[in-house]
Each structure stands twice: as structure tokens, then as C-alpha cells.
Amino acid sequence: MLKFIKTLQHKLIILTFLSLFLQITLAKAEISANRKIELKNSEDEFNFEEDESSSLKINDPFEKINRQTYKLNNLVDKTLLKPIVNLYRYTPQPIRKATRNFLNNLSLPLSALNSLLQGKIDNSLANTSTFLINSTIGVFGTIDIASNRGLLHNKEDFGQTLGSYGIKSGPYIVLPILGPSSTLNLAGEIMDRTISPLGFNSLNLFPEQQLLKNENRIILSITSAIDKREQLDPLITSVNQESLDPYATVRSAYLQNRQFEISK
């Protein structure tokens, strides 16, 4: 099992760098591409061509495959994830909240690093301080004392870091189980997990401390997935009930939100 994880880990790193190389090449090619065009007059507002009237460009060349994966993910969600989340909700609310705080806290060092890479020194310090305060006074991060006291921070990941360097988000993709992404964000996600001592830890940071055993990493990932699904439950329910085309809704909302996160 460990050998398999290690081989997979190496393949993912190679894939990440290949993907990054591709992204950078694409970014260079698109450097003179059209920027967002503001609405100029009232008639333009209603022209449909997205380049002209919309701030969002949908780049979905794999739509057919993506829609199939979306359907599959929905099936997995209905038959597996949703029932698990329903069971998880029997856990007392304070325990669920403490779990969410604990998981959020673990992601802060990486967020601090990414803030630093983007030159957001204030946010990097806010992430670091929050991590230190919550890990100590906040009992291993289970209580979010820092935010309660008004110390606010923005989460930053490697996808946002690459985006802030001007690398385009690339085609929209729907990943099996994991859901909506883009080639840029997939590369970012793999980098985050590669660098993080709590992820694959490929850089072998803090080897003596043995921060986490691989078995515990798997438990952590599963807990995190359940927590995220619970967090997204109202949104998923509302999209499934109200949307006229749930796939297009999720795609549009995801791409807009990522664009916003990068520009923040």
C-alpha cells in the first residue's frame, strides 16, 4: 500500500510539473488576449457573446466528458456521500464545529506560505498568528479564538498563487469524486498536497518529527471530505432543486468564485 502511494505520489509530481509547464506556455501565448470588457451601453448589456458582455469566459472544451463525470459524481453523492453526511449530523454540533476548526487550522501554514508567495505580507502574518493562537490557546485548533477576536484572514492556495502570477485558469474540468476544477487549480492542488507536511510530504519536511503517518493522512482526508460535503450541503440542495441546468450553474459559480479569489 505504502509503495503504491509512493509511486502514485511521484507520478502526481511529474504530472503537476507537466501541467504547470503547459499552463505557463498557454499563459505566454495568451498574454495579449482580450481583457475583461466593461459594459459600454445599455444595448451591449444584452448582447449574448460572452467575450463582449460577460466578465466570465467559459473555457469548457471537455464539456461532454465533464457532464458524464458530473452525473457520476451526483450518483456517488446521492448513494454514498449524502447518507454519510446525514449520519455525521448525529454527531453533536459542538464536536462538528471543533472538527471543522481543527481542519481549517491545519491548512493555515500553507495559506501563510502562499500569501507570502503572492506578496500579501499582512495576510501571511494574519494566517500565521491565527495558526499560532488557535494551536495553543485554541486547544490544537479546535477553537477558533483568533477569528472570534476579530483577527481575520483570507485562505490562499497554490492555484491562487499561480493565478496571481497571471497564469490563466485553463480548461474547466470535473474530477471524479473531487468535483469542479480547472487545469490550473488541479496543478495548484497537487502542489499544495506535495509541499504540505500533512499532505504527501514529498519534500520530506520535518522528517524526525514524523508529523503524520500515512494511515492518519488517509483518515484526515476522509474527515475533511465529510466536513466539506456537510458545509456544502445547503448549496448542493439548492442547486439541485432550483437550477435549470445544475452542471452549468456549478461551472459558472466555480469559475467566478476562483476568479474572485485570485483577484482578492
Binding site: S54, S55, I58, T249, N257
Partner: peptide, 20 residues
């Protein structure tokens, strides 16, 4: 909300529904 425009999302959704 958080960068997600309601009406942009609606436009994308409606266009896709009409195309399909």
C-alpha cells in the same frame, strides 16, 4: 456573493439549458 454573480450564473445556466 463572494464574487459569484447571480445574474451571470443565471445567464450561463439558461443559455446552456436552451442549447440543450
Amino acid at each position: 456573493a463572494e464574487g459569484v454573480s447571480f445574474i451571470e450564473t443565471q445567464r450561463s445556466e439558461i443559455n446552456s439549458a436552451i442549447n440543450n
